[in-house]
Design a binder for these strands. Structure first.
Lengths: 187, 187
DNA sequence: ACCTGAACACCGTTCAAGT
DNA sequence: ACCTGAACACCGTTCAAGT
């Protein structure tokens, strides 16, 4: 069966987001690409932000699935692999990354659920790595937060050009992740 | 002497940014609060983005000054103090934080200079801490990037609600910074 | 050099009306 | 239940003109 109007709207919005950022997502163009009028979206979403939240939730759901794939690796490598995957996703889809972690004026339950799901999967990987002796002990949620914060910050700084780009101090997000795991292994 | 028109425009833009985010910074309101017409800003800035870049550069310049203050502490504590200061600034001024590290369609040399200045000050603090034996060795630029990425990511995740908020795994950005320094000290 | 007022194209949102 | 067309208020930007 062909996509429902709602799915078409979300798809068109994601497409426009990739092409030109959130302000390029005009309800008029979303409607046009979906074959409906420019205010048909209001029958499916409260406003433009709710439409963007649906795009973010869809993206986060896909991220959670790719975390499930990382879980099939041996536990001592799964977390690192997952983090490199996170970085690759963010660098390839910077506007989706910025959207997902942007500021929302009105909280979307759909988005919150997707975020919790992704984070709890990662906590599972970290716990397994701890049990395998590949990561130091302590509260797994807290260690997960540490690792995720580093990966997230490295990507965000890289995207905004605030990471040293040239010269001998050059480090990309993948390097920083490996550095962190090196320090954690020594502890 | 009273503020020039340019300074008034930047000040009004910063005020509006704090009140309602970037989209609340309308050139019409900026002009009104500065006592000029709604298109007078175009005589000082190429467009709205250039005005926002001036706000970001001003903010980053102030951040660099506050890093200078941290340098007066003993070297083994200066970096940690600076990072807690970074977190406090970001949590108190989330819209300025998001603006500074947002995506710019057109690069501003003013902003790039301010960013380099802030980062090189931090590298100086890290180098001093390494010499004092408070941080592990290795390339100071790269270690600086690691620490900054963690602080930045922790704040950004906290602002977007992607850090665990309740339950036993709860960690705020300050906790994560201390955790990182703990792991680094053990290495 | 700096500023103004009018104008243009565009956008989010609302509303009355249609099926 | 879902959609349309007209309309409203608003905004970034441009332009001709003023001092």
């Amino acid at each position: 069966m062909r996509p429902s109007t709602r799915e078409a709207l979300v798809g068109a919005a994601a497409e426009l987001l990739d092409e030109g950022g959130p302000e390029a997502v005009t309800l008029r163009e979303v409607g046009r690409r979906s074959g409906v009028s420019h205010n048909a979206p209001y029958k499916h979403f409260a406003d433009k932000e709710a439409l963007l939240a649906a795009v973010a939730a869809q993206e986060l759901g896909r991220r959670a699935s790719s975390l499930a794939a990382a879980a099939e690796q041996p536990p001592d490598e799964a977390v690192r692999t997952a983090m490199h995957g996170y970085v690759a996703w963010a660098l390839e889809n910077p506007r989706r990354f910025k959207l997902v972690y942007g500021t929302w004026r009105t909280g979307s339950p759909e988005l919150a659920t997707a975020a919790d799901s992704a984070r709890s999967r990662l906590v599972g990987l970290v716990t397994a790595a701890q049990n395998a002796g590949a990561l130091p002990g302590g509260d797994p949620e807290r260690l997960t937060a540490l690792i995720l914060a580093l990966a997230h910050g490295a990507v965000d700084l890289a995207l905004s050009g605030h990471l040293a780009r040239d010269g001998k101090g050059r480090a990309d997000p993948d390097d920083l992740i490996d550095d962190l795991f090196g320090h954690l292994a020594k502890g």
